[in-house]
Nucleic acid binder design. Sequence first.
DNA 1: CGTGTGATTGACAACCATCAATTCGAGTGG
DNA 2: CCACTCGAATTGATGGTTGTCAATCACACG
Lengths: 246, 246
Amino acid sequence: MAISAYATIQPSACSHCAVRSRSICGALDGEEICALNEIATRKTLHDGEFFVFEGDAAQAFANVVSGVVKLTQSLEDGREQIVGVLFPSDFFGRAFGSQNSVYPCTVQATGEVNLCIFPAARFDQLLVKFPNLERKMLEQTQKELDTARDWLTMLGRKTAPERVATFLYHFATRSAEAGCKAGHAFEMPFTRADIADFTGLTYETVSRQISILRKQGIIVAESPRHISFVDMERLAERAGRGLSAH
Amino acid sequence: MAISAYATIQPSACSHCAVRSRSICGALDGEEICALNEIATRKTLHDGEFFVFEGDAAQAFANVVSGVVKLTQSLEDGREQIVGVLFPSDFFGRAFGSQNSVYPCTVQATGEVNLCIFPAARFDQLLVKFPNLERKMLEQTQKELDTARDWLTMLGRKTAPERVATFLYHFATRSAEAGCKAGHAFEMPFTRADIADFTGLTYETVSRQISILRKQGIIVAESPRHISFVDMERLAERAGRGLSAH
DNA sequence: CGTGTGATTGACAACCATCAATTCGAGTGG
DNA sequence: CCACTCGAATTGATGGTTGTCAATCACACG
């Protein structure tokens, strides 16, 4: 079959990549994926490790292969906000003109993370060469924009209980989608402080709200980082309008 | 000259369009712009008029020619959040597969607005035909995403005084950029309630904060809707980290 | 001149942040 | 195996910022 033939010519990681079908690489066929594979390098990040900082020159483009990555912004006095979360198959980076642009946010691993990295300039060339790749990138960027806008509504208009429920619901949905785990029991890569930075609350408030959900039997927390979602419907109810699962 | 020649063949609005150079149409040359012009229709919206509602099928794509458009989301109980503001030359709509997708937000005119509308299906065809158009669209979408993320930080982590200062600073910057007016005196298309929906506050709080800025001599308000920015530097200071001007 | 909408200002209350004290859990070394 | 340590999480007490309710003002329009 075609794929294994290409794999012989170019014994690439791409052909057996776990996220191949869902990531932007899914837009490419065997021949094209080889071109992409040529410029790709892998990198592992450990928990809390930074990949780029806010204001850095945008020189790379990367796909998340495994793990969870957070995008954050900070104010001068140290206040911090999570402005994006990347699951396996999500990418980040700026297409075109990235030479003179900078990253608008800090990129940090939450737990162990595997990245597939492409140099920006060479990736741009491939975008021009493979229209499908560019199209897929546009689609993903639009989805991320939709997600960001749902978060705006959460931060601007939802109460603390609603925000925490929204976060948990969104996280459970995204994790399941990204194939992290089936069913309703999850290993959370996020600390209470992370959830606070996501929801615009303090970690004390997050902790209190999670305790309430536990007492109401909506979730069960074996340990702070292991949560079972017992009643997704009641959770969704408490979340009000959910975040569009992207 | 070339342009007038095309104008003769196709006496299009595009060639003398006020936003041509800054909008995504700027990516197209004379011949291409004719193809775009063929599928374009104009539409005027009056203050408060809706163009599409959250959940509508995404059947159109539009460029803002003049005026200001707000994108909003609502919760079931009526709470509302502005998740985007479009100035002249900005567009909205979903590329590719828009047949089966829906608008994630309501689109509403703030003051008199002129739109240039393209049917989604035919616009998609042009996107495929003209790579420059698609590229420009990707760039704009990325910029909007950056802006949305800056707003997330504002909503999640800034205080009421900072939020109002951030809004005013952002609005002054964007208006100047979009060629709405030079200098530091602006006609606001937004009511206090709009600013509240933008900043995640109540209109009373917005009103109080604007009064404070006035008493401090940072702005002068001839009337509620006419604001002169006296001291942009002190305004920026009060805003903390600004919104990335997109 | 009355009416209606938007803006301003005040009084009060609620929600969430802050400060502080334990508790829990994982990892380390005796 | 147990004691110790350190960071994360939980829970409590209190205060401040901002929301809520309400009265008044300003201005446009019929």
